[in-house]
Amino acid sequence: MMKPELIYTTYIRTTPEKLWHAITNPEFTRQYWGGNENVSDWIPGAKWAHISGDEQRAARIIGQVVESVPPKRLVLTWADPADEADISRVTFQIESVDDEVRLDVIHGDFRPGSDMVNKVSGGWPRVLSSLKSFLETGKALKSASCAAKHAATEALV
């Protein structure tokens, strides 16, 4: 394993199943992740895309499902559609800890010279804060989802 560049952890009062659903269901992702939807069959080898929830359905991030073990582990490749060769890898790990669920997001395997790491490092904490709020209170953080939208756009430039 290469040394991962970014690791984020958050503890959420929910169940692993709900958290898995929140990450993989377009209706849910749209509510806390800058209005964008995660779309895929979520089986290894399948394509996945992070697309805008509006009429444009513009792909923000694309990739493939590498591993999918619901509701525990999801590994995806991650690339800007404008530069598909610049692939990195995102791992979601879900684990029950006492009465909470721990989510680890590991973003690594960036290509040498890629500035994707700088593009996403501000965005992940905002997305994960908003996800936590969404699952615990039923509401995404409005400001976070706006900020996350901005971050998702940044990741495209």
């Binding site: 958050t10 905002r126 804060s129 936590k132 953080l141 400001s143 976070a144």
Partner: peptide
């Protein structure tokens, strides 16, 4: 690694 998620949680609490 620095995990900035809790800092973001605090930030979002007061900055609307």
């Amino acid at each position: 690694y620095l995990n900035a998620v809790p800092i973001n949680d605090i930030y979002m609490r007061w900055i609307g």
